[in-house]
Amino acid sequence: MTLTEIPETAPELPVQVATPELEATNERNDRRRGFLMALPAFSFLTVFFALPLVLVVVYSFATRNRFGGTDLSGWNTDSYQELGSDLVRQVLTRSLVLAVITTVICLLLAYPFAYYMATRKIGIRNLMLVFVMIPFWTNFLVRNYAWYVILGTDGPLSQVTETVGIGPTRLLFTQAAVVLGLVYGFLPFMILPLYASIERIDGRLLEASRDLYATGAQSFRHVLLPLSLPGVVAGSILVFIPSLGAYVTPEILGGAKTTLLGSYIVTQFLTARNFPFGAALSTVLMVIMLSATIVYFRKGGRTL
């Protein structure tokens, strides 16, 4: 959106005949005002986001000393070479696969829901929005422990399946439990952008496609889906990225055999006290996320 500001002239100044110089001065003032307004957020991000990021990258080239500290000298790429090890590759692959699965499941669940929501009357729509956001009222950690209890060996889920005769479920500490927890945790981040983009689509376009001999499925494929692509892209990024780096959920529901990238990095920093290696892992993770984002925006973002 471009805002055209009405130029203000202080009342005591005489109104002047327009000249290119005056116009340039005006534009300069506008730009300065815009910059001043962005300054607080800008400084905050610089101090608390950009600097730590730089620090992580710097540390990844540093050396771990014998006492578990880090020497900011003798710069090298040893940490990056360690990334090639089988263990790292395993953890990385597992994390990517789980993140992709989580994203796809979220997309499949969220799309019909978002469509349904976007096509309701405004009152019902708002009510549904509240329902989508209700989980946010409770702490993420608490909600994960709730799943821990539900999925536990003698938990409610197991008892139910046992009662109906399927036998007990052993879900806790499996990858399925992690995916379940991630889907549960990040589903709203898929629903909301999808809803926002579907809601913007003119319903008559779908009618027009039906009028032009498209079946319901063809309407979806050729009109609804392409037009809601910005929402699909945004939602997928918002689910994929936190899933890839997830720490809390895999930690609580995943157990030891299914270490994911998030836990692995934490271990490097806190247990192994190998700051450079942890930093290198983090840097790689960020690069993956960044490239995923860029690729995604290139593919679908043009309509954003």
Binding site: L205, E207, S209, D211, L212, Y213, A214, T215, H222, V223
Partner: peptide, 30 residues
């Protein structure tokens, strides 16, 4: 889609993500 009629909609309802050719050939393609 099963009726032998077509509509020119109020405010046209053209598909914004398709060019003129794709808009016009849409019915035939479907």
């Amino acid at each position: 889609n099963k009726r032998p009629v077509n509509t020119v909609f109020q405010n046209y309802a053209l598909f914004p993500h398709m060019n003129v050719l794709d808009n016009v050939s849409f019915g035939l393609r479907m």
